[in-house]
């Protein structure tokens, strides 16, 4: 068994190209097509927010990026290497590919039978094959980083929504991912818990983490994002640097979407 923790030759430095790139993604569920030819890319260290009304295909795009959903059509590149092409299939070990990409879910998806600490060490121990002691030491550091070191032995059901999501972020960080995908990370939270999660995400952004965030929190997007991608009806309406998008978007539709959201 190979012991290196990288995908094929993909551990090479990314160079100038994007870290992750999707070209012409289509996704069809039965009769309805939810993505019609989306191009998307993220550079190392970049923070990209994907916004748009519900049902616009944002979440499906995010899931295609780590292959939780396989596209019907299109291509996926990671550090310049071909991950897959559809129709056709995945060209790499999916597990290994996903282990490089963290994901934070709307409903946290902590494992209910495990303590916070064990939730965090699960991936490092069983995917990265780290030593138990090393994995736990790092998990404690991560818990401290998300402000929950006292909750190491707590079970998810005893945690509040905000605490759960912070543990979930620590779980994603524990894999030392190259980037993290956030799928509406604050949508399921009560209003008073949204900030604790957004603040943590701001800190991650400051630390240079590459982040792709599907969100309805437009003020957060304006503060944190380098680039904003606006989607509707399964296609990208407009994308661009955050400041231009919020101040001088080209399309009326983009202005509507960004304004409506901002008022919330």
């Amino acid at each position: 068994m190979r012991t290196d923790k990288t995908i094929g030759g993909l551990d090479a430095a990314a160079g100038a190209g994007p870290l992750l790139e999707a070209r012409g993604l289509h996704k069809r569920f039965g009769r309805s097509e939810v993505l019609h030819g989306v191009d998307f890319s993220v550079r190392r260290g970049e923070k990209v927010c994907i916004v748009g009304p519900s049902g616009s295909g944002k979440t499906t795009l995010l899931r295609c990026l780590n292959l939780l959903v396989e596209p019907t059509c299109g291509q996926l590149f990671y550090k310049g290497a071909h991950i897959g092409e559809w129709p056709g299939g995945v060209k790499v070990n999916v597990g290994r590919y996903r282990s490089r990409i963290g994901m934070v879910f709307q409903h946290f998806e902590l494992f209910p039978h495990l303590t916070a600490l064990r939730n965090i060490t699960l991936g490092p121990r069983h995917v990265l094959h780290e030593e138990k002691a090393a994995a736990e030491k790092r998990a404690m550091e991560l818990l401290a980083r998300v402000g929950l070191e006292r909750f190491a032995t707590a079970h998810p059901r005893t945690l509040s929504g905000g605490q759960k999501q912070r543990v979930a972020i620590a779980r994603a960080l524990a894999m030392r991912p190259d980037l993290i995908l956030f799928d509406e990370p604050t949508s399921a939270l009560d209003a008073e818990m949204v900030d604790e999660v957004l603040n943590l995400m701001r800190r991650l952004a400051e630390d240079g983490m590459t982040m792709v965030i599907v969100t309805h929190e437009l003020s957060f997007a304006r503060d944190v994002a380098d680039r904003v991608v606006v989607m509707e009806h399964g296609a990208v309406v407009e994308e661009g640097a955050a400041e231009t998008m919020f101040s001088a978007a080209r399309s009326q539709r983009t202005r509507d979407i960004l304004r409506v959201g901002a008022r919330r």
């Binding site: 899931r63 780590n66 939780l68 999916v94 597990g95 290994r96 590919y97 996903r98 282990s99 490089r100 990409i101 963290g102 994901m103 879910f105 409903h107 998806e109 902590l110 494992f111 699960l122 991936g123 069983h126 995917v127 779980r171 994603a172 894999m175």
Partner: peptide
């Protein structure tokens, strides 16, 4: 199903 997805997102087979 989301529990399966969460595990998959960590790279578990």
């Amino acid at each position: 199903a989301t529990q399966w997805e969460a595990a998959a997102s960590l790279g578990l087979g």
